[in-house]
Computed example of a mutant assay.
Amino acid sequence: SAGRGQELRMARGVAVLLHGKGGAISQARVRRLLGAGSQVVSLVPEKAREKKKPQAPATAATAAPTAPARGRPASYLDLYKQSATRCPGLSWTVLAAIGQVESSHGRNNGPSSAGALGPMQFMPATWKVYGVDGDADGKADIWSPYDAVPGAANYLCANGAGKGGEKLRKAIWFYNHSWDYVNKVMGVAEGYARAYT
């Protein structure tokens, strides 16, 4: 409910986090409950879901390829966790929250009305400075989550995110010049922290 969402300090209209053990949560059932327009994204690594029961192949929005190539993580969750290590002091939950708010974990890669591109919605000029070749395939690709998520960690770190507190909030503000955006990202990050750590 909206009241429960406020109590949990969740960002309104952005995310509902569900936590269950042993495959107790069905994405299809959640989608039916929330309605056809809802976006349901699992942060459980695809391999863990496959062990529980066979499922249809993952889409780019729900998980990265299940067989890691060139050291690629097996899911967005793993990618956020791995990328956060580029910036000591930065929680993976902040990267995951930005990924949720910006593109719903790769489901809406743009371009945005402002010209931002890819799963982490970088402006091309910012990407030229902070983009990275996260999967060591020889190119820094703004459209690839394997490059964009570590690129976001790189950009946040350059703006002081690893120092936490107000420095973290200011680094998120540099990502998108809106304090409402900062509050939304922090709210989603807190939700992920409660659910996964």
Rank of each mutant, 00 (worst) to 15 (best):
P45H: 05
S38Y: 04
G23I: 02
A15W: 01
R29G: 01
L43Y: 00
A58F: 04
K52W: 13
K53R: 04
G23S: 09
A64Q: 11
V30H: 09
A48M: 14
A11S: 09
L17H: 13
S42A: 15
A56T: 09
A61G: 11
K53H: 01
P57F: 12
I25M: 05
E46V: 09
T62I: 04
G37A: 07
K51E: 14
G22D: 08
G23H: 01
K21N: 12
V40H: 05
S26R: 13
K51F: 14
L33R: 10
V41H: 12
G22C: 05
A60F: 06
L17K: 06
A60H: 09
S42G: 08
T59S: 12
V40Y: 05
V40I: 14
P57H: 11
G20F: 03
L43K: 01
G35N: 03
R29T: 00
A48Q: 15
A56I: 00
A36G: 13
K52Q: 14
L43A: 06
S26H: 10
V14I: 07
K51G: 08
L43G: 09
Q27P: 15
L43C: 03
L33T: 11
T59Q: 10
S26T: 11
G22W: 00
A64W: 04
G13I: 02
V14T: 07
G20L: 10
T59A: 10
L43E: 09
V14L: 05
S26I: 09
K47N: 14
K21D: 12
V41M: 13
V14P: 00
H19R: 14
G37T: 02
A28S: 09
V41N: 15
L43H: 00
R31S: 11
A11P: 08
A58H: 08
Q27N: 08
E50N: 12
S38C: 02
P65I: 04
R32M: 01
T59D: 10
A36C: 03
R12F: 04
L18H: 12
V44C: 13
V16I: 08
R32H: 04
V40T: 15
A28Y: 05
R49N: 00
A63I: 02
A11K: 00
L43N: 06
P54R: 01
P54S: 03
L34V: 08
P57G: 10
K53I: 00
S38T: 05
L18R: 14
G35R: 04
A15G: 08
A11E: 06
S38W: 02
P57D: 12
G20M: 09
G23C: 06
A56Q: 11
A15V: 07
P65H: 06
A63P: 14
K21L: 11
T62Q: 09
Q39C: 10
S38R: 00
S26V: 07
E46S: 14
G13S: 02
R31C: 03
A61C: 11
A15C: 07
E50F: 13
V16L: 11
K51Y: 12
V14S: 07
A56N: 09
A61P: 00
A64D: 10
K53S: 01
A11Q: 06
P65N: 01
R49V: 01
L18I: 11
I25C: 04
R49H: 03
V44T: 15
V40Q: 07
V40S: 05
L18T: 05
A63C: 14
L17W: 10
K52H: 11
K51C: 13
A36Q: 08
V41S: 15
L17P: 03
S38E: 07
Q27S: 15
I25F: 03
G22I: 02
